[in-house]
Design a protein around this nucleic acid. Structure first.
Lengths: 192, 192
DNA sequence: TCCTTATACGGAGGCTGCCTCCGTTTAGCA
DNA sequence: TGCTAAACGGAGGCAGCCTCCGTATAAGGA
């Protein structure tokens, strides 16, 4: 074996366990929030606690990895939806996915907001920009198809969506309410 | 001794220890946030952990007691400031005290926002209303003195203050910035 | 195919905090 | 001064945090 390979690929078991841990953490942190038990995450992933700590030295590392994973999923989804023939429907689907994420991963979002470090701020900035770009592409597509008002911006959509989510979150049944209001908003953006 | 006294006053040691615990919790929770150690609170108060749990059966009971204590302090301050000859200065002092509270008790506020129960929502509603009333009285006083625009509302002030606090909080030095912006805002409300 | 070893795994163990339970102490009434 | 309801304190059992180190294994080279 090559004894000195500074940038070697991670071993296959390491890669697999990392994925397992992130999947488990999605569920456990999403429900339990900032105080959720990391031993519980390791148990659900079927790995030892030592493995968890090797991959994610601190609680924040794990939170960040999960968050990044989720947001990159949304970015991927936006890219896929650019194939869609109906640009407005594409936007609607994408926003539904985003609201669903806020709904199921509430604990995670609270956890992220509790521990704000320089590091997490940088990540947040980077991901926000990429997300906004992905949505802007969807908007442009719909505008080009002639089904959306040409003065629409990605920020209009994102700000409205997050404002609705956060203003409504505590009540039960808020998700349906927000989706209804979003539909109205999107209809308002249609070329008549 | 009267064995059957359903609504007896708490014993003096109980009252004293309750105060000691709230004082200690102010510091410990203000710094440590939601995850702060309750044993640490008891140690700082100089009482046993059992005593803490008798007075505050859950972490939330303690959080709520501290929060109520702080907000009632602000309400008392507003009442005292009604004696002040200069209504605008009184408002300014009061808002400075409020910003200082946000600055030193950040951990507490985060803790309160993480665990939202029916109970805490009711308390929050009640205290918000009383706080708004106290500020409204200060505003009316200043208006009556002819030093403040007569269309000013307590909500204008409170919303502006909290929006500034929460939008700015993470940066270092935010407190001075917020105080400066608040001063400008209050000057804007002066009758010229 | 097998050997070698860098890489990764798992969980025991020490520590801290949570919360309960109960024996001890004390405030305050008569 | 005596009595007792009320309050105190901390031991103890349990759970989670994180580290450390002996064991297992993936994968490059012979």
């Amino acid at each position: 074996m090559t004894p000195r390979n500074p940038a070697r690929e991670p071993r296959s078991d390491a890669r697999r366990n990392r994925e397992l841990l992130i999947d488990a953490a999605k569920v456990v942190l999403g429900q339990g929030g900032p105080g959720a038990s990391l031993e519980n995450v390791a148990r659900r992933a079927g790995v030892g606690i030592g493995t968890l700590y090797r991959h994610f030295p601190t609680r924040e590392h794990l939170f960040q990895a999960v968050y990044r994973h989720e947001v990159e999923g949304l970015i991927r989804l936006a890219t896929q939806l650019r194939e869609s023939p109906d640009g407005v429907e594409a936007l609607r689907s994408w926003m539904r996915a985003n609201v669903a994420l806020v709904a199921t991963k509430r604990g995670l979002l609270v956890a992220m907001s509790v521990t704000v470090t320089e590091d997490s701020k940088a990540m947040y900035t980077e991901l926000s920009a990429r997300l906004a770009d992905a949505v802007a592409a969807l908007v442009q597509q719909a505008v080009a198809q002639g089904v959306l008002r040409s003065d629409t911006t990605a920020e209009d959509l994102l700000h409205t969506m997050y404002a609705l989510c956060y203003a409504r979150q505590p009540e039960p049944g808020w998700e349906a309410q927000v989706l209804r209001l979003l539909d109205i908003f999107i209809n308002g953006l249609r070329t008549q």
